[in-house]
Design a protein around this nucleic acid. Structure first.
Lengths: 255, 255
DNA sequence: AAACTATTCCAAACTCTTTCAAACTATGTT
DNA sequence: AACATAGTTTGAAAGAGTTTGGAATAGTTT
């Protein structure tokens, strides 16, 4: 068994039981006490549980304040996303009412946010937790949760968003082309994105370079309806059609 | 048993009973008098209780304003919560529209849910993730996120919930007494709970035994407005005033 | 004085750290 | 593809340290 799996199981166990002894854990998971000890030591160092004499007790996993480094391993364009997130976060001014779209791209924005004198609204469950965990005033859109992306969408969500007037908004997308605009695979999600974008004075679409040139079934905005924040484009031809902000590597190298 | 767990149980016993002798405590907790003495000495040194000749007392201002520490709450009464959750989950029938309150108590319910032919709505961020993760049709209430509990509350949330008609609802509470009913520390949260409860045909309050006899600043429902699901009660006098379902140990021993 | 409670001390049981060899992984070389 | 090598992970064991329960002794209450 991989150590990741084992440690995940330890946390699951503590989730259910609240606490556990070394012996208990080694039996449930089927490994030696030595290994459990080493796992607990690691998990404690990462702040995921509290080691106590004889075992461990759970730390609340809801307030996950994952470090930016943690995520880098997972995703190919992780570094780009971080850079995009850092720039996007710098755009928020005091008094703004900011919409933050669900999906992985916008998560990085939240980690770099600093403006406490602004109100944030999101339709992403994880986004809401991150925002709350970091101490920002957070509103959540009500509606149906879409399983894959954990984003709140649907008729009710659209109805609610129609009453909101955002000064700033950060959106994710799956595909971008000059002709088809911003596209996503899911029709209901596209409907919500479209509604949210219409309520936003300054909408920004965050996109790593992989999104360019791709087309998905449903367009939620035309190419000139939002400004794009991305890292360096390989295909410079896009520049002719779009309002693009390239977040350069050098721009933040010394931060 | 870990010494942390033991000491929490001592404090909880004193919370409920006001005081306890060494003998009482050693019997209830199932450990030697020597150990109880040592625990009491430590807890006294930390100012968590007052050691007296023969036992200990806890300064009991019956109305508490402070929010119970989420981390601690997670550990305590884990088994009771599981049992309560398992029973509550069995109450859901096909076609139900089920409200699930935020907070730690209701999390266990979700882990035992099996009825896919029902729609679930929640105001808890973590609950929403759990429900979605387990593949249930999930709705989320929109509104402001309250930091400590990660529950969605506020005016907007109340407005939305007024349009919902739940056939079944599971609520958490901080305190229960016959006179003051179900109470919580936060006024805004109480307002939402109250609204949600009014929209529910069959409301159930889930409560481990530690909740009984405690009073918090705001009442969100009177004692006869909801049925209580709990594990075995130490103080049987409550039975006279309330509709209580005791989830017995034996009931599920062989599951 | 009798009954109860607290303190001290000790041995047994338990837990932690360190250490080491075996098993496993990853990588480079032939 | 087979092999060698270095690095990592694992389980077991030994010794140090901690916690526990009980017994003897000292103190307190009635």
């Amino acid at each position: 068994m991989l150590s990741q799996d084992r440690q995940e199981r330890i946390l699951d166990f503590l989730d259910r039981e609240g606490s556990g002894s070394i012996k208990q854990l080694s039996q449930v998971i089927g490994t030696s006490e030595s290994t459990i000890r080493r796992d607990l030591k690691q998990l404690d160092a990462n702040g995921l549980l509290t080691k106590v004499y004889g075992g461990a007790t759970r730390n609340d996993r809801r307030v996950r304040t994952e470090e930016p480094d943690m995520l880098k391993k997972h995703n190919l364009f992780a570094e780009e996303k971080e850079r995009i997130g850092r720039y996007a976060a710098s755009l928020v001014s005091p008094g703004d009412f900011v919409f933050i779209d669900g999906g992985t791209t916008t998560e990085a924005v939240i980690r770099y946010l600093e403006e406490k004198d602004a109100v944030y609204m999101t339709n992403g469950l994880f986004q809401a937790q991150l925002l709350t965990g970091r101490g920002f005033e957070t509103l959540v859109v009500g509606g149906t949760v879409r399983p894959v992306t954990e984003a709140i969408v649907g008729e009710e969500a659209v109805k609610q968003i129609r009453d909101c007037n955002f000064s700033l908004g950060f959106f994710g997308t799956n595909g971008i082309t000059a002709e088809n605009g911003f596209t996503t695979p899911n029709i209901i999600e596209a409907g919500f994105k479209n509604a949210a974008l219409e309520q936003t004075l300054n909408p920004f679409v965050l996109a790593d370079p992989s999104k360019f040139g791709r087309i998905y079934p449903k367009t939620f905005a035309h190419i000139d309806e939002a400004q794009i924040i991305t890292t360096e484009l390989y295909d410079k031809s896009y520049k002719n059609h779009m309002r693009i902000k390239e977040v350069d590597v050098d721009l933040y190298r010394d931060l």
